[in-house]
Design a protein around this nucleic acid. Structure first.
Lengths: 223, 223
DNA sequence: TGACTTTAGTCACATAAAGTGACTAATTCG
DNA sequence: CGAATTAGTCACTTTATGTGACTAAAGTCA
């Protein structure tokens, strides 16, 4: 990632890297000493012949020191809003990492999503887009599992869903749905977290075959 | 849209314009005499200062002679695949139009999606992306209504959903779900389609307030 | 005209899923 | 030991979906 490199290209690749921190989502920002804005999303100008996906992966690794557990393009942003580069267009990627294993490089810092510093306008739009993408991908992709360590308790999983959905879930319902989806696999390990009965550990079990929805659900929110 | 304009930019905007034709989706292609491929998606190189959305809208209008009833960005495509331009990156948009009102300009032709001619590789990827986006937006956005005329019968609406979902639906279930969603409004008109009882006409009724999903549904297909 | 066909629209019952409170289990703390 | 705490399950209620059969309103044709 370079700052205001002069005319190296007409587009950039920007990364919205997310993790679950406390009981909120957090985004990784980098300090920009030479910019008007103090903080920005990690970004770079792809090199000639470098694919968008590759550029995004590099940007993420440079920031995190490791690969995100999930990466997905959000879209291209170009509506005249200001960006640290002079590019007309920026392609944004959403990346997820479990907070437990993430150790960002120096000059990179996690900010809770409710407490973000001012960002370049185009990147602010990207963050909003990333949040929306995350929400709508929630039941299409294993988002929650990619924000958790490889093994977890069902209570942890439920808390992650509660964080992502922004509402409380009933324990029995949650587990019943989880069981029906055949998405997790119990391990022969238990974890005692201070007081209370120890919880069994589970891991994500990618499944090929799923029964399809039964009927039609007109569940869209509006126009 | 210009053909192989030399280095006017490093990215293009391409439009995947869809309609429902017969009992399949169809895509609007344009004949390219000077290209190796005979057909391609409509595309253009945005002018300086032109936003992506504006460029996509222009491209669509140029092809259709009118605005699509729905337009949405699919994403940016840049993975080294060949494109009619020399751009590294192309931003694709999905546009929808009712077949009844669409009258493409000369040199533009609808092709059913199961019967597409060879396309430039990058555009082939875009078409696949558009199809996927369409499927997954089906219950998030009023896709079906944007492919129908302003007024329609419930049987027509059901047939559109059947086309989009690729499966038959039970009439009673369909109408019950539709009613619960409060998405259409009956008109005081009936249409007699040859034999059989005349059908009442309805129109789309965008609704602000929807009840939220109740619980968790782990309905994603796989990893 | 009147029986038959065709498409629209609805009903009632069966089955399945989701909401919910209360229960049992295993551990720590004092 | 008993209270507190967290895990995990059960049984019952409520709501949603699946489905076949029904009624309604037109056209067709002998």
């Amino acid at each position: 990632m370079r700052e205001r490199s002069s005319k190296t290209g007409l587009y950039t690749v920007d990364a919205v890297l997310m993790t679950a921190m406390g009981n909120q989502l957090a985004i990784l920002l980098v300090r920009n000493s030479s910019e008007r804005e103090r903080w920005s999303l990690p970004w770079r100008t792809p090199q000639t012949g470098e694919s968008l996906d590759a550029a995004a992966a590099s940007t993420a690794e440079e920031a995190l020191g490791e690969s995100p557990t999930w990466m997905e393009q959000i879209g291209a942003f170009g509506d005249g809003k200001r960006h640290p580069s002079e590019a007309d267009v920026s392609v944004a990627y959403l990346g997820l990492v479990p907070h437990e294993t993430a150790s960002p490089r120096a000059s990179y810092t996690w900010f809770q999503i409710g407490d973000l510093p001012p960002l370049p306008p185009r990147q602010r739009t990207m963050v909003e887009g990333a949040t929306k993408t995350l929400q709508s991908s929630l039941d299409q992709a294993p988002i929650a599992f990619r924000l958790l360590p490889a093994t977890f308790t069902l209570s942890e999983l439920q808390q992650m869903y509660e964080l992502l959905l922004g509402k409380r879930l009933h324990k029995a319902s949650f587990r019943r749905a989880l069981q029906a989806a055949w998405l997790v696999e119990p391990m022969d390990e238990w974890r005692s977290e201070g007081r209370g009965r120890p919880a069994q550990l589970f891991r994500y079990l990618p499944k090929k075959k799923r029964r399809p929805h039964r009927g039609v659900r007109f569940d869209f929110l509006y126009p």
